[in-house]
Computed example of a mutant assay.
Amino acid sequence: MSEQRTRPTVYAVWLIVAGVVGLIAAFALTVEKFVLLQNPQDALSCDISPFIQCSKNLNSPQGEVFGFPNPLLGLMGWMAPLIVGVAILAGARFPRWFWAVFGAGITFAFGFVCWLIGQSLYDLFVLCPWCMITWAVTIPTFFATMLHLTRNGTFTRSEKVQERANSLMVWVPLATVLAYAVIIMMAQLQGLDFLGEMARIIF
């Protein structure tokens, strides 16, 4: 399905939503990092319990993989989906190389998030609320982007494959829910009672 024949409005709207949510989470984590640097002993506003908190993540080596706080990556990175989504709604058409680069960036973000999930569950034994929000928007963005790059001809010129990818877009929400379920199951198996902790906090 050529991008020239149809404007991916739903995908564009999702990119905008994901970009805004991702930026909010990254900004909140950046602020919390500043607070932590000024007052290392103080509890952060996102430190809900020993199991759900930001402090341990932000203070860990995993929180500064590239030599600076990870939230700065979010502040820079989430601008891309937001801008691309707005541009699509404005009628922009991007060349194949642009989509390839965009897809590579989204793939990197997804891989990095998967690594961070593993580190949180199996090394730090804690879940960061703002980090989980980032995970929550990165996962469906990756699924949707891979299908979009297939249907718009970036990955293949086969119209049959493109049409198939387009028909699979409706399954992105279900795939996302299943991915969330796997993460929750991993947390439960690791002894981190995510569901019980959420119920206690809410009720």
Rank of each mutant, 00 (worst) to 15 (best):
V10Q: 06
L15C: 13
L15K: 02
I16V: 14
V20F: 10
A25G: 10
A28T: 10
T30M: 12
T30V: 06
V31W: 08
V31D: 06
F34R: 12
L37K: 12
N39Q: 15
N39V: 12
P40A: 06
Q41T: 15
D42C: 09
D42W: 15
I48C: 01
P50T: 13
Q53G: 08
K56P: 01
L58G: 01
S60R: 00
Q62F: 12
E64V: 13
E64M: 05
V65S: 07
G67Q: 03
F68E: 11
P69M: 09
L73E: 05
L73W: 10
G74M: 04
L75H: 10
L75N: 10
M76C: 11
M79E: 14
A80G: 13
P81H: 00
P81A: 06
G85V: 09
G85N: 03
L89I: 01
G91N: 04
A92V: 11
A92H: 11
R93K: 15
F94G: 02
F94Y: 14
W99S: 06
W99V: 07
A100K: 11
V101D: 10
V101M: 12
F102I: 11
F102N: 05
A104H: 07
A104W: 00
A104Q: 08
A104F: 11
A104P: 03
G105W: 00
I106L: 07
T107C: 11
F108G: 00
F112C: 04
V113S: 14
I117M: 11
G118Y: 08
G118M: 07
G118A: 00
S120C: 04
L121S: 06
V126L: 06
L127K: 00
P129N: 04
I133A: 13
T134P: 08
W135D: 06
W135P: 03
A136G: 13
